[in-house]
Amino acid sequence: MWDYSDQVKEHFFNPRNAGVLETANAVGEAGAISCGDALRLMIHIDPLTETITDAKFQTFGCGSAIASSSALTELIIGKTVDEVLRITNQDIVDFLGGLPLEKMHCSVMGYEALQAAISNFRGEQWVNDHDESALVCKCFGVDETIIERAVRINRLTTIEQISHYTKAGGGCSTCLESVEEVLVRINAAMAAEGLITAEQAYVVGATDIRALNNEARASTQSEPVVASGKTPRISPLRTARFPAKPGAASHRLTPLQRIRLIEDAVEGVRSHLKADGGDCELVDVDGDQVYVRLSGRCADCQIASATINSMRQKLHEATGLALCVIPVSRGSHP
C-alpha cells in the first residue's frame, strides 16, 4: 500500500466539503470515470466581492484523489477569484504534506477542475476541450494543453514525470513519442524564458522510449517514491489560460455543431453494428458523455462492453473529441 502522509489519510477518511453544493454558481469538472478518476468541483462565488463563499466536491477515484479534492476546497474557501487563480497543483501537494510521485496526477486533476470552475463563473470556455488542442494520450484523454500546464507549473523535464502528473502515456504507451515531442517543445520554450536552464531541458532521445514502455508495464512492483512537499516554488503562470494554437479558434465548435458531429459519427458506427445484426441509437449528449442504447443482437451480445469500447474509439476517430460512451438500458433515460 502507499505511504500516504497523515494529512492525506485524514482528508481521505474524513473528507471536508464532500457532496453537492445546491447554491453553486460555478462548476468545474476534470477526469472521467473511464480513466479511473473524476472530480466535480462546485463553488459559490459572491458576485460583488468575487469571494468564494462555499465549495463542495464529488470525486470518483483513489484515496489521494479524494484527499486532493478535499484539500482543494479547504484551500479556496474564503479566497477571492484572483487569489485562487494563483493556486497550483503544487499547493494541493504541499497542503497534504506530499503525495507519492505516481499520484501527482490527483493534484493536477484538482487544479484543472478549479480552473474550469472559475472559467465557468466568468462565462468563458476553459481550454481543456479537446477540439482546441491536439489529443496526445487517447487512453486517458490528455491533450497538449493539460501537459503544457503541468510541465510549466511543476517544471517537469522527463517523460516519466509527465505520466505521473497527467497520466499521459500510462496506458497503451503508444503516445510516448508524441509526449516526448511536446516535452521538447515546452522545455525549449521554458529554457528560453529562463524558467529552467538549458541543461535541464529535455532533449530528443534522452529516454529510451522502448525501455520506458517495458518499465511502465513492470513498474507495479517498484516501491512508490514520496515526492517531498518542499518542491521549489515557482511563479504561477502569467496567465491561467494558454492561447489556443494558431488556427484552432476556427475549429471551435458550437454546441449544436458538436452534437451534429457526434450524431454523424454514431450513424457511421451503426452501419458496422447492423452488419452484425445489431443496432444502436443516440439517446443524449451531456458534455463529454454520450449516452447510447444498444439494440438487436448488440443488446444481448456477450461482448457488449467491447462494443462500447470500440464505439468510443470510432467516435473519437470521427470527431476528434474525447468522449465517454455510456450504455443505457431499454426504456430508461439518463
Binding site: 479511473g36 470518483f60 500510462g170 496506458g171 511502465a216 507495479t220 517498484s222 462492453s305 462500447i308
Partner: peptide, 25 residues
C-alpha cells in the same frame, strides 16, 4: 484497480475480460 497497484489502468485480467470501466476500477 489501477490506483492500488501504481499502474494507471485496471488489472490486465479484468481488461481482458472486458469488464466495463464503470466497474473494473
Amino acid at each position: 484497480s489501477a490506483c492500488s497497484s501504481g499502474s494507471l489502468e485496471p488489472s490486465h485480467v479484468l481488461r481482458a475480460m472486458n469488464v466495463p470501466f464503470t466497474a473494473a476500477h
